[in-house]
């Protein structure tokens, strides 16, 4: 995995793991690889992985079972909330950037709808090619 050197690594590790959960690569109840293995896989420091996992355990997304390892929570509610949160974060970024271009809320919605429609057409075309 390639890291952006400008963003704290523990934060990027968290995002990576969230992403794995959202795409279903890590399902509720799944066991995470050992800390050192994760560090090797991601080519990062063990301490940084520990920090990322520690924060995720505090958030309740991961559950640590002593002597067994770390597991993705079975609590569907928490996962749903996480997904909402991630979507909101992405939207927040888009919103702020568009806002910075002096677009009003209505304009943002219109452009977004327009974009999605265009994107849908383009993707359809690509599939039919």
């Amino acid at each position: 995995m390639k890291f952006d050197d400008k963003i704290p690594i523990y934060y990027q590790i968290k995002n990576y793991l969230y992403h794995e959960m959202m795409t279903g690569a890590l399902k509720p109840g799944d066991k995470l690889p050992a800390v050192r293995q994760l560090a090797v896989d991601l080519t990062v420091n063990v301490n940084t992985v520990q920090r990322a996992l520690g924060e995720m355990i505090t958030e309740g997304i991961l559950e640590s079972q002593r002597g067994k390892g770390n597991f993705v929570t079975m609590n569907e509610q928490r996962i749903t909330r996480l997904k909402e949160q991630l979507v909101m974060e992405q939207l927040e970024r888009v919103y702020e950037q568009l806002h910075a271009l002096n677009l009003t809320d209505e304009q943002i919605i219109t452009s977004l709808k327009q974009y999605i429609a265009q994107r849908g057409q383009r993707d359809d075309q690509r599939v039919s090619d």
Partner: peptide, 8 residues
């Protein structure tokens, strides 16, 4: 740059 991700 190459070792940056592994440094504490």
């Amino acid at each position: 740059s190459e070792i940056a991700p592994i440094l504490d």
